[in-house]
Write a protein that binds this DNA or RNA. Structure first.
Length: 170
DNA sequence: CCCTGATTCGC
DNA sequence: GCGAATCAGG
């Protein structure tokens, strides 16, 4: 079932793409068994590319890839694709960020000192990631976290308690 | 593992 | 021209 790129669909594609929709989103909306690959392929063929990135900005030209290798030797010199200078992209919508986290760790990776508790707090991939930062007793953790970190083998009935105590620190 | 776009190349 | 496969990255 090859829907083919009718003017309609191409128009919709352009619109949605320029709107900032992701390829997969557009593929869904166009329906008709169009995959995101198809969308991306078409987009490139149309010469559209690069725009405000909605969610996961996978910037182009981040790295040169060896390209795909399936069968047949590369005999094609491959014409120069397209020299894209940095174009002024549409201003990305800036959603306001509310709320400040409530009392995260007191130390960041930058301020974490030698004798500060290195118990991680929060998602390490988050900018809000921090460390406990309290006085480290002997090891790298403060007393409280050391207890959690160095839990001896669970005793009977200790599971729930551990789970509860862990929860407190996460 | 989810997602993103980019690229190549057999069809 | 088309798009699956593959890649690279967040």
């Amino acid at each position: 079932m090859t829907a083919g790129w009718t003017e309609d669909r191409v128009g919709a594609l352009k619109k949605l793409w320029l709107e900032g929709q992701s390829a997969s989103q557009i593929a869904k909306q166009l329906g008709g068994g169009v995959t995101r690959n198809a969308v991306i392929g078409k987009v490139h063929r149309l010469g559209l590319s690069g725009r405000a990135t909605p969610s996961q900005p996978a910037r182009a030209a981040t790295t040169f890839r060896p390209a795909r290798v399936r069968t047949t030797p590369p005999v094609q010199p491959s014409a120069p694709r397209r020299i894209e200078a940095a174009q002024p992209r549409p201003v990305a919508p800036t959603p306001s960020l509310p709320s400040v986290q409530e009392l995260p760790g007191t130390a960041t990776v930058m301020t974490l000192g030698a004798h500060m508790c290195k118990w991680p707090i929060g998602d390490p991939s988050s900018p809000e990631f921090s460390f406990c930062g309290r006085r480290a007793s002997e090891g790298v953790y403060c007393v409280e976290h050391a207890r959690v970190a160095f839990q001896p083998a669970l005793k009977r009935n200790g599971k729930d308690e551990l789970a509860r105590s862990l929860r407190r620190y996460i």
